[in-house]
Structure formats: structure tokens, C-alpha cells
Computed example of a mutant assay.
Amino acid sequence: MQMYEEQKSSCPVKVPVECRFSPYTDNGGTTLAIAGDDFCVIAGDTRQSEGYSINSRYAPKVYQLSNGSVLATGGMYADGVTLVKMIEQRLEWYRHAHDKQMSSGALAQMLSTILYHKRMFPYYVWNTLGGLDEDGKGAVYSYDPVGSYEKQKWNCSGSAGHLIQPFLDNQIGFTHQKEKAPLTLERVVQVTKDAFTSATERDIYTGDNLEMFLVTQNGIEKTRVELKKD
């Protein structure tokens, strides 16, 4: 036994030890946005989780930024809150300098610049900006973490995004359908509720409550619907 220990201690080969640290975490959740002819619906659930633990049942992912723009953000909750605070500060500076609200198009470009500025250590979030454009029509802007964005008619992101996106392509975009139903605000709201209700049955990171922001020419209306709690 003693001889074995001496041989083992004199062996020059050591087992490598890997040390790894990540400043990021994914707190789950799902957001979506759908643009109509003269309205836009932005929605997200309120569950904040990590692994198999629920940190909070009410951690909003959707924020009203101006009279006509709403931001849905998810991923790492801390980064999302930090990003929203920075955007609100920039919007306040803009109001003091120009005495008016920033338009949705200008806000979309500003958000892209903010995200690109942090490209070396990006915010670990996905973002979807929704509202009315300069012509009063609904607009949805989807982003990657480093600021590249695209104007779309509908978009879904998050842990249940792969479940809801095909549903939106079928029910909103009428993909592979001959007849297209009118895209009214009432229909979009019902499709949004159905999408999240179904997603909670399959995705453990989405649930508790659904918050919807309805953006129209008359302003922004916020509604809340209860979702599955387990």
C-alpha cells in the first residue's frame, strides 16, 4: 500500500481541472407581438423561473415605453430590467430636448444602437418592440441580442416560441390556406389567449399570468388573464 502511494505521488501527470463561470442565466418565459392594420397587440407571461424552480409568479416582461410603443423582453430578467431603465432614461432626455414623444420607428433604431453598443458583452435578452408607425399602422420589430432587427407583422420569442410561432403562421399569416379571415383586434386577442393557454400545457417555463397591451389610435389598454399555475 505504501509503495502504491509513493508511485502515485511521484507521477507527473495530473488530471486537468476545468473552471467555468457564466454571468448569464435564462429565466424563461414567452412573449409575442402581432400587428394589424391600425393596431398592435404585445403580450407576455409573468412567470420567472430558473431550472426547475419558480422565482416569482409575477415578473412582467412587457413594458409601455411611450404613448404608442411597447417593449416585450425576456431571457435574463436582470438584463431586461437594466435595458428598460436605460431606454426610459433616453426617452426622458428626448422629451426634454424635443418636447414630444419619440416615434416607434425612431425608438426601434435607438434600441438597435443600444444593443449594438453592448455587443462585446451583450444583454442576454430577446426583444420585440410593437406599436404604431408614422402612418398609424401596426408594426412589430424583432431583435437579436446584438441589435440586428427586422420589421414584421407577427413574432414570438422565448421558451415556448417554437410552439407558438407555427400557430401564428397558420392563424395570423394563413399559411397554406386559401381563405383568409379578416384580422380584427378581437380575433388577435383571442388567438393570443389560445396560444398562451396551449403553450402552458407543454412548457413549464411559461405560465401564471398573461399580460396584453392593446395599442390603438386611442391609446394603450392593458389587460391580464390568468394562466396555468403548475
Rank of each mutant, 00 (worst) to 15 (best):
M1G: 15
Q2C: 13
Y4A: 13
E6D: 10
Q7F: 08
Q7Y: 06
C11I: 06
V17K: 05
C19A: 11
S22N: 15
P23S: 08
T25P: 05
D26H: 11
T30W: 07
T31D: 00
L32D: 01
L32I: 05
A35L: 01
D38V: 06
G51C: 09
Y58T: 11
A59T: 02
A59C: 02
P60Q: 13
P60F: 09
V62M: 06
L65R: 03
S66L: 00
N67A: 06
N67L: 01
G68C: 06
S69W: 08
S69Q: 07
V70E: 11
V70Q: 07
T73W: 01
M76N: 14
T82D: 03
L83R: 02
L83V: 03
K85Q: 12
M86K: 13
I87Q: 05
E88C: 04
Q89C: 15
R90E: 14
A97P: 15
A97M: 10
H98F: 11
K100R: 00
Q101L: 02
M102I: 01
S103K: 13
S104R: 01
A106Q: 12
L107K: 03
Q109I: 13
M110S: 12
M110G: 06
M110A: 09
T113H: 06
T113L: 05
Y116R: 09
R119Y: 07
F121Y: 15
P122Y: 07
N127A: 13
T128P: 03
L129C: 08
D133C: 08
K137F: 04
D144G: 01
V146F: 07
V146P: 00
V146K: 07
Y149K: 02
Y149W: 04
Y149I: 04
Q152G: 07
Q152I: 03
W154H: 13
N155G: 03
N155C: 10
S159A: 10
S159C: 06
A160S: 08
H162I: 10
L163H: 11
I164N: 08
Q165W: 12
D169P: 11
I172L: 15
I172R: 07
G173E: 10
H176R: 05
H176C: 02
L183H: 10
L185F: 10
R187A: 14
V189I: 15
V189S: 15
Q190W: 11
Q190H: 15
Q190L: 15
T192A: 09
S198T: 07
S198N: 08
T200D: 03
E201Y: 05
R202W: 06
R202S: 10
D203L: 04
D203R: 04
I204M: 11
Y205K: 10
Y205T: 09
V215M: 08
T216M: 05
T216G: 07
N218H: 12
I220H: 09
T223E: 07
R224M: 13
